[in-house]
Amino acid sequence: MRGRGHETVKVAAEIAVPIAIVVVWELWARSADSQFWPPPSKIVQEFNDLWVFEQFRSDVVPSLMRILLGFGIGSAVGVAIGVPLGMSLWARKFAMPQIEYWRAMPPPALLPISVLLLHSIGNLQKVSFIAFFCIFPVLLNTIDGIRGLDPTLVDTARAYGIPAHERIRRIVLPAAFPQISAGMRISLSLAVIIMVVAEYFSSTSGVGYVLLISKNTFQLGPMWAAILLIGVIGYVLNLAYMLAERRMLAWHRGWRAATPQ
């Protein structure tokens, strides 16, 4: 951005500061010797013991599956509802109070209800629960993306007698896609959070489950390893989505113009 000044100093700072933080934490944790705050080296070792690859299949894979399935289903539903709502003012007016209510609802408040309604603490409940809350960011962004569409585009297509489903597929969805995609990115990070909360509430497998068990058995090592893993999952999924988005939206001029560098 503002590339003036001593570039080397900045690069050095960018590398040195994170390392310094970890080193200070390591030294402090070793001298304090508290069981609650293990040094990073110990957490990394615990992380290796636990996830690479002891419990990878039993706990990490189920969690990832739930995140991705819930995210996928929620996004699809969000777009499917968002398109008609974006195109019809009255449908939107009618549905908006409901949408505003459910998306303001703190997700954990519905956890016990989801268990009751679905008679499940397994994948069915986890995936539906994640999917439900993934709907809203995508839904709202779909609506906004469609409302922000150039009306000339749609009217021209209509004047040429292009049928409605073709208009949606070829004009409305592509034009709204950058915004839909931004909503999907929010949903993806939401899916990780909700996975943790749902598994921590009731489950028999998953990263959140490991978190719960390690709390109940007072094992701080696995707990820190689980926290680190959840951070890594959140970070990696976000990064992966950003790269995928960049490829998918490479054609989009507005997106390019809006992105620095």
Binding site: V9, K10, E14, V17, P18, K215, A226, G234, Y235
Partner: peptide, 29 residues
């Protein structure tokens, strides 16, 4: 610019950590 760059990595790494993961740690401490 210098401060922003220096703390870019810690911020980018801490930001996506779901705070809910800290619940058991807080409960015990």
């Amino acid at each position: 610019d210098l401060a922003g760059r220096a703390f870019r990595v810690p911020v980018e790494f801490l930001r996506p950590i779901p705070s809910a993961a800290l619940i058991p740690l807080l409960f015990l401490t």
